[in-house]
Simulated assay, not measured.
Amino acid sequence: MIGNIVSFLSSGENIAFFICALLAIGGAIFMISFTKVVHMVAALAITFISMAGLYVILEAEFVAVVQILIYAGAISILMIFGIMMTKHRQGEEEEPHRPWHNGLLFVGAAALFGMIFYAIQKTELPSGSFPKVDDNTLEIGKLLFNVHVIPFELMSVLLTVAFIGAIIVAKREED
Protein backbone atom coordinates (compact mmCIF):
# COMPACT_ATOMS: atom_id res chain seq x y z
CA MET A 1 0.00 0.00 0.00
CA ILE A 2 2.78 2.45 0.94
CA GLY A 3 4.70 1.36 -2.17
CA ASN A 4 1.70 2.29 -4.33
CA ILE A 5 1.57 5.75 -2.80
CA VAL A 6 5.31 6.29 -3.28
CA SER A 7 5.14 5.15 -6.92
CA PHE A 8 2.08 7.39 -7.45
CA LEU A 9 3.95 10.45 -6.19
CA SER A 10 7.07 9.73 -8.26
CA SER A 11 6.25 12.05 -11.17
CA GLY A 12 5.56 15.77 -11.19
CA GLU A 13 2.27 15.33 -13.02
CA ASN A 14 0.97 13.06 -10.25
CA ILE A 15 2.11 15.50 -7.57
CA ALA A 16 0.36 18.38 -9.37
CA PHE A 17 -2.78 16.24 -9.66
CA PHE A 18 -2.63 15.38 -5.95
CA ILE A 19 -2.26 19.05 -4.96
CA CYS A 20 -5.06 20.23 -7.27
CA ALA A 21 -7.34 17.41 -6.14
CA LEU A 22 -6.71 18.19 -2.46
CA LEU A 23 -7.40 21.88 -3.08
CA ALA A 24 -10.61 21.07 -4.96
CA ILE A 25 -11.86 18.73 -2.25
CA GLY A 26 -10.71 21.02 0.55
CA GLY A 27 -12.35 24.06 -1.04
CA ALA A 28 -15.61 22.15 -1.44
CA ILE A 29 -15.52 20.98 2.18
CA PHE A 30 -14.74 24.49 3.42
CA MET A 31 -17.50 25.89 1.22
CA ILE A 32 -20.14 23.78 2.94
CA SER A 33 -18.54 24.21 6.38
CA PHE A 34 -18.21 27.99 6.54
CA THR A 35 -21.04 30.09 7.95
CA LYS A 36 -20.19 33.45 6.37
CA VAL A 37 -21.22 33.75 2.76
CA VAL A 38 -18.13 35.72 1.68
CA HIS A 39 -15.89 32.93 3.03
CA MET A 40 -18.03 30.40 1.15
CA VAL A 41 -17.49 32.29 -2.10
CA ALA A 42 -13.73 32.40 -1.51
CA ALA A 43 -13.66 28.63 -0.88
CA LEU A 44 -15.74 28.07 -4.00
CA ALA A 45 -13.30 30.18 -6.04
CA ILE A 46 -10.42 28.02 -4.76
CA THR A 47 -12.33 24.93 -5.87
CA PHE A 48 -12.92 26.43 -9.33
CA ILE A 49 -9.26 27.40 -9.76
CA SER A 50 -8.03 23.97 -8.68
CA MET A 51 -10.45 22.37 -11.14
CA ALA A 52 -8.83 24.50 -13.84
CA GLY A 53 -5.48 23.09 -12.73
CA LEU A 54 -6.86 19.59 -13.20
CA TYR A 55 -7.97 20.54 -16.71
CA VAL A 56 -4.44 21.75 -17.50
CA ILE A 57 -3.06 18.41 -16.32
CA LEU A 58 -5.52 16.70 -18.70
CA GLU A 59 -4.18 18.91 -21.54
CA ALA A 60 -7.49 20.73 -21.96
CA GLU A 61 -6.08 24.24 -21.81
CA PHE A 62 -9.09 25.93 -23.41
CA VAL A 63 -11.47 24.41 -20.86
CA ALA A 64 -9.09 25.47 -18.06
CA VAL A 65 -9.07 29.09 -19.25
CA VAL A 66 -12.85 29.09 -19.61
CA GLN A 67 -13.12 27.58 -16.12
CA ILE A 68 -11.07 30.43 -14.67
CA LEU A 69 -12.75 33.20 -16.67
CA ILE A 70 -16.35 32.12 -16.23
CA TYR A 71 -16.49 30.25 -12.95
CA ALA A 72 -13.65 31.59 -10.84
CA GLY A 73 -14.08 35.11 -12.16
CA ALA A 74 -17.60 35.87 -13.27
CA ILE A 75 -19.60 33.56 -11.01
CA SER A 76 -17.63 34.54 -7.91
CA ILE A 77 -18.07 38.24 -8.68
CA LEU A 78 -21.76 37.69 -9.36
CA MET A 79 -22.17 35.92 -6.03
CA ILE A 80 -20.38 38.70 -4.15
CA PHE A 81 -22.54 41.27 -5.97
CA GLY A 82 -25.64 39.33 -4.92
CA ILE A 83 -24.43 39.29 -1.32
CA MET A 84 -23.90 43.04 -1.39
CA MET A 85 -27.37 43.69 -2.85
CA THR A 86 -29.27 41.57 -0.32
CA LYS A 87 -29.98 42.36 3.31
CA HIS A 88 -28.40 40.14 5.95
CA ARG A 89 -29.30 40.09 9.62
CA GLN A 90 -26.49 40.33 12.11
CA GLY A 91 -26.50 38.15 15.20
CA GLU A 92 -28.43 35.21 13.81
CA GLU A 93 -28.64 32.14 15.98
CA GLU A 94 -25.71 29.79 15.67
CA GLU A 95 -25.96 26.03 15.51
CA PRO A 96 -25.37 24.22 18.79
CA HIS A 97 -21.75 23.13 19.12
CA ARG A 98 -21.30 19.38 18.74
CA PRO A 99 -17.80 18.30 19.83
CA TRP A 100 -17.79 14.95 17.98
CA HIS A 101 -19.04 16.42 14.71
CA ASN A 102 -15.64 17.36 13.23
CA GLY A 103 -14.03 14.09 14.33
CA LEU A 104 -16.76 12.01 12.73
CA LEU A 105 -16.53 14.10 9.57
CA PHE A 106 -12.78 13.48 9.38
CA VAL A 107 -13.19 9.72 9.94
CA GLY A 108 -15.91 9.55 7.28
CA ALA A 109 -13.85 11.53 4.78
CA ALA A 110 -10.78 9.36 5.43
CA ALA A 111 -12.84 6.19 5.00
CA LEU A 112 -14.31 7.47 1.74
CA PHE A 113 -10.84 8.43 0.49
CA GLY A 114 -9.53 4.97 1.40
CA MET A 115 -12.38 3.19 -0.40
CA ILE A 116 -11.95 5.31 -3.52
CA PHE A 117 -8.16 4.83 -3.48
CA TYR A 118 -8.59 1.06 -3.10
CA ALA A 119 -11.17 0.93 -5.91
CA ILE A 120 -8.92 2.91 -8.24
CA GLN A 121 -5.93 0.66 -7.48
CA LYS A 122 -7.89 -2.55 -8.12
CA THR A 123 -9.74 -1.42 -11.24
CA GLU A 124 -8.37 -2.52 -14.59
CA LEU A 125 -9.10 0.16 -17.13
CA PRO A 126 -9.12 -0.69 -20.83
CA SER A 127 -6.28 0.85 -22.74
CA GLY A 128 -7.18 2.89 -25.75
CA SER A 129 -5.74 5.61 -27.85
CA PHE A 130 -7.30 8.84 -28.91
CA PRO A 131 -6.11 10.86 -31.88
CA LYS A 132 -3.86 13.62 -30.60
CA VAL A 133 -4.55 17.03 -32.10
CA ASP A 134 -2.07 19.86 -32.30
CA ASP A 135 -4.43 22.64 -31.22
CA ASN A 136 -7.35 21.87 -28.89
CA THR A 137 -8.77 25.37 -29.19
CA LEU A 138 -8.87 25.17 -33.00
CA GLU A 139 -10.73 21.86 -32.89
CA ILE A 140 -13.23 23.20 -30.35
CA GLY A 141 -13.76 26.27 -32.54
CA LYS A 142 -14.36 24.12 -35.62
CA LEU A 143 -16.95 22.04 -33.77
CA LEU A 144 -18.57 25.10 -32.22
CA PHE A 145 -18.95 27.09 -35.43
CA ASN A 146 -19.65 24.22 -37.82
CA VAL A 147 -21.52 21.44 -36.05
CA HIS A 148 -22.99 23.26 -33.04
CA VAL A 149 -23.61 26.73 -34.50
CA ILE A 150 -27.38 26.83 -33.78
CA PRO A 151 -27.08 26.08 -30.02
CA PHE A 152 -24.19 28.58 -29.85
CA GLU A 153 -26.30 31.34 -31.39
CA LEU A 154 -29.32 30.47 -29.23
CA MET A 155 -27.14 30.71 -26.15
CA SER A 156 -25.85 34.14 -27.17
CA VAL A 157 -29.45 35.37 -27.70
CA LEU A 158 -30.45 33.94 -24.31
CA LEU A 159 -27.55 35.69 -22.57
CA THR A 160 -28.40 38.98 -24.31
CA VAL A 161 -32.05 38.74 -23.22
CA ALA A 162 -30.98 37.94 -19.64
CA PHE A 163 -28.62 40.94 -19.65
CA ILE A 164 -31.35 43.28 -20.90
CA GLY A 165 -33.78 41.87 -18.32
CA ALA A 166 -31.28 42.49 -15.53
CA ILE A 167 -30.90 46.11 -16.66
CA ILE A 168 -34.69 46.59 -16.71
CA VAL A 169 -35.10 45.10 -13.24
CA ALA A 170 -32.26 47.25 -11.86
CA LYS A 171 -33.76 50.38 -13.44
CA ARG A 172 -37.22 49.67 -11.95
CA GLU A 173 -35.75 49.31 -8.45
CA GLU A 174 -33.87 52.58 -8.89
CA ASP A 175 -37.06 54.50 -9.70
Rank of each mutant, 00 (worst) to 15 (best):
S10R: 14
Y55H: 03
M51K: 03
M51R: 06
V63F: 07
I80Y: 04
A24V: 09
A119I: 05
I70P: 01
M31Q: 09
Q90G: 04
L104S: 02
I2R: 10
G114T: 06
N146M: 08
A42Y: 07
V149L: 15
H97W: 07
I32D: 02
K122T: 11
L158E: 07
I150E: 13
V66C: 09
N102Y: 10
F8W: 12
V37L: 15
V169K: 11
G53P: 09
E61D: 09
V157I: 15
G91L: 03
E139L: 14
A166H: 05
P126G: 00
W100N: 01
G27M: 05
S50N: 05
F48H: 14
K122D: 04
L104R: 12
L143S: 12
L158D: 02
S7H: 04
V6N: 04
S50C: 01
G73E: 05
S10Q: 13
S11M: 01
V157W: 13
G73M: 10
G165P: 06
V38I: 09
Y118M: 05
K132D: 06
E92W: 07
A110M: 11
F152C: 06
I120M: 14
A162G: 08
V169F: 06
M115H: 03
G27A: 03
E61L: 08
N4E: 12
K142M: 12
E95T: 10
D135L: 11
F145C: 01
T47K: 06
M51Y: 11
N102R: 14
H97M: 08
S76K: 03
F17Y: 15
L78R: 04
I49P: 03
G165W: 13
I167S: 02
G141K: 06
K142E: 15
G128C: 05
V6Q: 11
E153R: 11
N4S: 13
M51S: 05
L112E: 00
S156A: 15
I167Q: 05
I29H: 07
E61C: 00
E59P: 00
F18W: 14
I2C: 02
L138K: 14
V161M: 12
L44C: 11
L143H: 09
E153S: 04
I68F: 11
G91I: 03
T160L: 15
